[in-house]
């Protein structure tokens, strides 16, 4: 049981690392939002699942945190994306291709 929980924790931490790597490597803000949001959301969920297995007494609060993250993470990134779009931030195009917008 402990091993399964630890693997969940490790997977979650790895996903968070991928999210950070994503915002470091991606070429423009929209792609960074994509990489950052998805990976960090599942990362937190994995860590919550792992802790829930280790400490069954904490699960009500863990469920509350999970629901909260599942709601705020996409809303926050959509709000950011819309703000950048309205402020006129362009979408990155691969080099050699004409910007279409």
């Amino acid at each position: 049981m402990r091993l399964v929980a630890d693997l969940f924790l490790l997977a979650g931490a790895l996903l968070c690392l991928l999210a950070a790597l994503g915002i470091l490597r991606m070429p423009d803000v929209y792609n960074r939002i994509q990489a950052g949001t998805k990976a960090s959301t599942l990362g937190v969920l994995c860590i919550l699942a792992g802790i829930g297995l280790l400490q069954p007494a904490w699960w009500p609060k863990l469920v509350a945190i999970a629901g909260f993250i599942l709601f705020t993470s996409p809303v926050g990134s959509s709000t950011l994306a819309r703000a950048f779009y309205r402020a006129g931030v362009k979408v990155w195009q691969p080099p050699g291709k004409e910007a279409s917008r």
Binding site: G12, A19, I23, R32, I33, G43, V44, I47, G76, L80
Partner: peptide, 17 residues
């Protein structure tokens, strides 16, 4: 701002751990 957003989520994960 994007970095701060993602950092917030990662820091939440860290606090839970």
């Amino acid at each position: 701002l994007v970095a701060a957003d993602t950092l917030g989520v990662i820091a939440t994960a860290g606090l839970i751990l």
